[in-house]
Amino acid sequence: MFFIPGPLIALATFPGVIVHELAHQLFCRWFRIPVLNVCYFRVGNPAGFVIHEPVTKSYQSVLISVGPFLVNTIIGALVSFPAAIPVIRFGAGDFLDYFLIWLGVSIAMHAIPSTGDAKSMWQSVKDVSPITRLLVMPIVGVIYLATIGRFFWLDLFYGIGVAVGLPTLAVAVYSYFV
């Protein structure tokens, strides 16, 4: 296992960081939670952040925190979809195709919420009913497990799976039914 410093990875995959923060901001807007400060990308730790006013309902905090998982996954898959097919399936990609795949992998690999997201999610359910906490606990647990998985390039594998694996699978499934 080889180690590459986080800021270097963030630099190489900066579009994913931007989309990650945009996803947080999008969910804040959706719930009409005022955003106080946004940093879409910087060389540092964290590579980006969204500071918003406290939320009124715990489900809002959960969705703001896990928003990037949904948004980055969907956008990563969509962006790389038309490029992954010629490159992976037909070995006929051009510069634009490789660029879109890099973009898709970069976006999808930043889908996993950070421990900061998990902490703020956990903070928001601290004083609510035990049932809500019980529901949120597995999500927080999965985020922490995924963070450990990052040491083993889980985020990269996830990014490749979404950006390259999904289009290949989609063609296979679609061809089977059509």
Binding site: Y40, F81, P82, A172, Y174, S175, V178
Partner: peptide, 29 residues
């Protein structure tokens, strides 16, 4: 600005999906 750029990228990618998909399905057929 960043949001608009992401939006444009998605639109660009979406316009290319049907062509790629149709060609890949034609190959499978």
């Amino acid at each position: 600005m960043a949001g608009a750029l992401v939006g444009l990228l998605i639109i660009f990618a979406l316009t290319r999906i049907p062509t790629s998909m149709a060609a890949a399905v034609a190959f499978e057929r």
